[in-house]
Design a protein around this nucleic acid. Sequence first.
DNA 1: TGCCTGATGTTCT
DNA 2: GAACATCAGGCAC
Length: 189
Amino acid sequence: MSDLEKQLSMPASQAARRLLGCELERIIGNETIKVRIVEVEAYDETDAASHSYKGRTPRTDVMFGPAGRLYVYFTYGMHYCCNVTVGKDGEGAAVLIRAVEPIKGEAIMEQNRQGKSGVELTNGPAKVCQALMIDKQLNGHNLANAPLTLVLNPASEEDVVVTTRIGISKAKDAPLRFYLKDSNYISRK
DNA sequence: TGCCTGATGTTCT
DNA sequence: GAACATCAGGCAC
């Protein structure tokens, strides 16, 4: 088991907090993009809003695998969203990455986002995938390895705000969305 | 500023 | 055949 997997083998709500403030490094050709995770949502198989709620299917297979993998899904006919799998091997849990802050490679992200800049670059789950060029090819990717790696660097507890989740129709009231209070890149305050 | 809607593919029933 | 963890553009106020 990799160190990353160990660090994320915990309940989704805990893992979600631990992912806030962490860095993602994306290698595209000779370029490197680096971002900081500032907004996430937790999902597990006891949760009616989770893809894993109805059990393991070919689509959700990755969610039920070991922690520290990327779960990419396609939604609303035109967008990708990316999750980091968490929990023990066999548990269908994942953390949706809703927003990130650019650290490095902003120019490349602007290209990927068709000239959009500033907070518009990455303040939404589908935007994050566009900016980082994440698509279904990276589904199941191990985040311990290039070309997309997760660097654990958790933010301190007092910077974390907890709210209900966004854009879902079931289990709306569960307080499973977490964001960093100081960030401007939050999709909605 | 804020609501409404179109675009559009994959998965599951 | 319907639902869907979305975004951006248009129009009304």
